[in-house]
């Protein structure tokens, strides 16, 4: 049993390392396409963490939606969108902006750390492995019904936004 525990811990560390490495590449990449791939790797690492925490369904959804769809959409946006101009980038990369960005990151990190440290974590008394699809479905449609419906509103907004943008492009092409 000890060996299994070691393997599980090693995998946990490995997934964290994958998440961090992906995040690092996403931020530091020279090409924006490399940044997207870094993001994909980071999200895969998070999927691994979900798996480690005993929720395979969430992990699968993470891979299916974030890696398989969201990253692809971002890559498409990059390929279809206008080419970034060098002088525009210079405007963004000023010293003041760097300071502001750093401060925002630190603030967010600090907030999260304070919450994590201060929260009283209730350890699960028995790990039932009850993250089955039935359980998830029931809790989504009973306990978390409001958030579930709100998410669908967000998706509706996104669809309408996409339609409007597509229509504007069409009008410009016609005129």
């Amino acid at each position: 049993m000890f060996a299994y525990k070691c393997i599980a811990e090693a995998l946990f560390v490995f997934f964290i390392a994958v998440t961090f490495t992906g995040g690092y590449f996403a931020v530091r990449a020279k090409y924006i396409m490399h940044a997207v791939m870094g993001l994909a790797v980071s999200l895969l690492g998070i999927a691994g963490l979900y798996f480690h925490l005993g929720s395979p369904f969430l992990a699968m959804m993470q891979v299916l939606i974030y890696v398989g769809a969201v990253c692809i959409i971002i890559a498409f946006g990059i390929m279809v969108g206008p080419k970034p101009q060098a002088d525009e980038e210079k405007r963004v990369l000023g010293k003041r902006n760097a300071l502001l960005a750093g401060a925002a990151c630190l603030l967010g990190f600090g907030l999260l750390t304070v919450t994590v440290v201060q929260a009283t974590w209730v350890p699960a008394t028995v790990k039932t492995g009850d993250m089955t699809v039935r359980f998830l479905g029931e809790s989504l449609l009973n306990q978390f019904c409001l958030s579930f419906e709100l998410i669908s509103v967000i998706l509706l907004t996104a669809i309408i936004g996409a339609l409007i943008i597509a229509n504007i492009g069409k009008e410009e092409a016609e005129s």
Binding site: P56, F57, M60, M61, V67, G68, I72, A75, V133
Partner: peptide
Amino acid sequence: DLDVGLVFMLAIMSVNVVAVLVAGW
């Protein structure tokens, strides 16, 4: 026998798209 076996297979197959995109780009 994962209780989400079907989703597992579909998720795995969706990674293939990323590979194709990376290869082409």
